[in-house]
Design a protein around this nucleic acid. Sequence first.
DNA 1: ATGGCTAACAACGTTAGA
Length: 266
Amino acid sequence: MSLKIATWNINSVRLRARLVGRFLDEFRPDVLCLQEIKCRTESFPAATFRRRGYDHIVVNGQKGYHGVAIVSRVPLSDPAPRSFCQKDDARHLAVTVADGGPGIRLHNFYVPAGGDEPDPAVNEKFAHKLAFVREMAAWLTAAETDLPTVLVGDLNIAPLEHDVWSHRQLVKVVSHTPVEVAGLEAVRAAGGWIDAARHFVPHGEKLYTWWSYRALDWEASNRGRRLDHVWITPHLLPRLRSVEIVREARGWKRPSDHVPVIAVID
DNA sequence: ATGGCTAACAACGTTAGA
């Protein structure tokens, strides 16, 4: 049995319910992790998913901002949202995905964006982002990942030089600053995680999952960043078949500024 | 180096995204 796991920052799941439907119809993931659903748990458009056989739905929502959800065609168990930085701001949700064996633990994250100024002393949002990432590192240790585990989501950090369109021009821009990159690397190292997308793509090659709405022509300017990630624990590596970034979704009508990332695990 | 768009909300400007 193989599992197709997708992650997508949808930037309002109600506004883009039809777009999500298109993605599910065309790509048929078994599990879809969404971020920035921007709605309360009770307002989640469940019918869009149930209609297509995604009967297993777990939502950690709130009014207006953030919010994450996991929808699945295979059973989900042990749902566990976790709060970070003593805030109930709906940025995480974990479940166990049935895989015919012991199951796969799946964490869905929406890491704070961090505001504009990359200085925690003057920018509370950046301080929050750094604290959030520190808390992830402390929590997501080997002990926490007893089952084979997949971590996905909008981590809002582009760690490698070629995860942004210009390292030189973005090194002082929030999402690519050295302090954030070091923070994310500490999370990765603490859990022994493998960056699944980069497992298949050389580090010297550009790779993006997000393009700003502000560009006149996102495709022509192609000033992207790789903010959306799929990480796996090492015992899953032999089962990792592919990772696909669905770039075409950025060109769909009224798109999210992020595109889906899909990993296939045997 | 950006540029200046997109979304939610008891909403017609403010806050947030990144």
